[in-house]
Simulated assay, not measured.
Amino acid sequence: MDQWDDPEVVAAWRRWRARFAEQTRVLTEVLLEAAGVWPGMHVLDLASGAGEPALALAKDVGPRGYVTATDVSDGMLAIIADAARAEGLANIGCRRADAAALTFPDESFDLVTCRLGIMHIPDAEEALREARRVLKPGARAAFLVWGGSPDESGAFLHSRIIAKYIGVPPPPANAPSALRFASPGSLPAALREAGFRQVEEMTHRCVMACPGTPTQVWRSIREMAGPLRQLLARAPAETLERIHEEVETAFQAFRKGEYVQLPATVHVATGLR
């Protein structure tokens, strides 16, 4: 079973969806600003996960526009559909789709977006070529990925702590991973290789305001991240207890009121068809 269709993972994303949307709102705003969204656009969002930025896009394009949210997980798409109904958004549809093998006709969309997804797609290069294919001439694609290094990002604070207790070998070069395009210039190079023109990259240092206590924030992270769940499940109980205690203590240093304020670095790369 794919990790994103694991019933426990899907249930966790449903449980924490609203909090995660608030936590990553700053990333959505950065992406949408770079994308240049306007009312009436028809947008394709790749690897939509539990709904962001697809739901935010639907609000921005308005009733004359339309957003197609895609993912390989039926469970995630069901979360998006339910959230859209709850928010009264009738201009968004959900389609199961492999980003590297899209079934949409050529030149179908005014904009393609992807937030924190392209680095996890096995054949990212083909996914970029597909994104370009389905764009109308002169239309834009915008991709947001993690930047920097784990040592400088609060978003990966837990990963640094876990590595002290559990050996995690680095992924092979160009293999799917959170930091696959973290090096500046790597994603723009892939966009140019896929045929995009006027490619640009912007680096942003953001602060993610994670609602809740350090205990709640850590629980949401470990429940939603499929690979992390599997990794921690193999850890001895004593090791797991130490990890929990150290992560929560580390998050406490970033606590401000009702939020844990985690710094993060992201790159946004855009290109035209």
Score class of each variant (00 low, 15 high):
Asp45Leu: 01
Gly49Phe: 04
Gly75Gln: 00
Val112Ser: 04
Pro53Asn: 10
Tyr66Gln: 11
Glu87Met: 12
Ala127His: 10
Pro150Cys: 11
Ser108Glu: 15
Glu125Ser: 15
Arg96Cys: 00
Ser108His: 09
Gly147Lys: 08
Gly138Ser: 14
Gly65Ala: 08
Ala84Trp: 02
His120Leu: 15
Ala50Val: 02
Val145Phe: 10
Phe143Ile: 03
Ala97Ser: 15
Met76Ser: 04
Ala141Glu: 07
Arg115Gln: 13
Glu152Thr: 14
Phe143His: 03
Val145Arg: 09
Asp74Ile: 00
Ile118Trp: 08
Trp146Glu: 06
Glu130Ser: 00
Val112Thr: 03
Glu52Ser: 13
Leu44Asp: 00
Val145His: 11
Val61Pro: 03
Ala50Arg: 02
Asp82Ala: 12
Gly117Tyr: 04
Gly93Val: 05
Glu126Leu: 15
Leu111Trp: 13
Leu89Arg: 13
Thr70Glu: 03
Tyr66Asn: 09
Pro63Arg: 09
Asp98Thr: 01
Leu116His: 13
Glu152Val: 11
Arg129Met: 05
Cys114Met: 12
Pro150Ala: 12
Ala141Trp: 08
Ser73Leu: 02
Asp106Leu: 10
Pro105Met: 10
Leu128Glu: 04
Pro122Gly: 14
Ala124Asp: 15
Asp60Asn: 11
Met41Cys: 10
Lys136Tyr: 07
Arg64Tyr: 11
Ala141Ile: 06
Ser73Tyr: 06
Ala84Glu: 01
Trp146Lys: 05
Gly147Val: 06
Asn91Ile: 06
Pro150Lys: 14
Leu128Pro: 00
Thr103Pro: 00
Val112Arg: 04
Leu57Gln: 03
Glu52Lys: 04
Cys94Pro: 06
Phe143Pro: 00
Thr113Trp: 03
Met41Glu: 11
Gly147Tyr: 00
Asp98Val: 00
Asp106Trp: 10
Gly148Phe: 05
His120Asn: 15
Thr70Pro: 01
Ala86Tyr: 09
Gly62Tyr: 08
Asp74Lys: 07
Thr113Asn: 08
Pro150Asn: 13
Glu152Met: 11
Phe109Gly: 04
Ala83Ile: 02
Gly138Asn: 14
Thr103Tyr: 03
Leu102Glu: 02
Ala99Ile: 00
Leu102Phe: 08
Leu55Ile: 12
Val67Ala: 10
Glu152Gln: 11
Phe143Trp: 12
Leu135Gln: 05
Gly88Met: 05
Arg132His: 10
Gly88Ile: 00
Arg96Val: 13
Leu44His: 08
Ala78Arg: 14
Asp74Asn: 08
Pro150Phe: 12
Met76Tyr: 09
Ile118Val: 14
Leu44Val: 09
Ala81Thr: 11
Glu107Cys: 10
Met119His: 14
Leu128Phe: 10
Leu44Gln: 02
Gly154Ser: 12
Asp106Arg: 14
Ala78Glu: 15
Cys94Leu: 01
Ser73Cys: 04
Met76His: 05
Glu152Phe: 04
Gly93Cys: 08
Ala47Thr: 09
Thr70Asp: 02
Asn91Thr: 13
Ala142His: 07
Ala84Asp: 02
Asp151Arg: 14
Asp82Tyr: 07
Arg95Asn: 07
Met76Gly: 03
Arg133Asp: 08
Leu135Phe: 07
Cys94Ala: 11
Pro122Ser: 15
Gly88His: 05
Pro105Thr: 09
Val72Glu: 03
Gly65Trp: 05
His120Trp: 15
Phe143Asn: 01
Ala50Cys: 09
Ala83Asp: 04
Ile80Ala: 02
Pro137Val: 12
Leu135Thr: 07
Thr68Phe: 02
Ala47Ser: 12
Leu128Trp: 06
Met76Leu: 13
Val145Leu: 12
Glu125Cys: 13
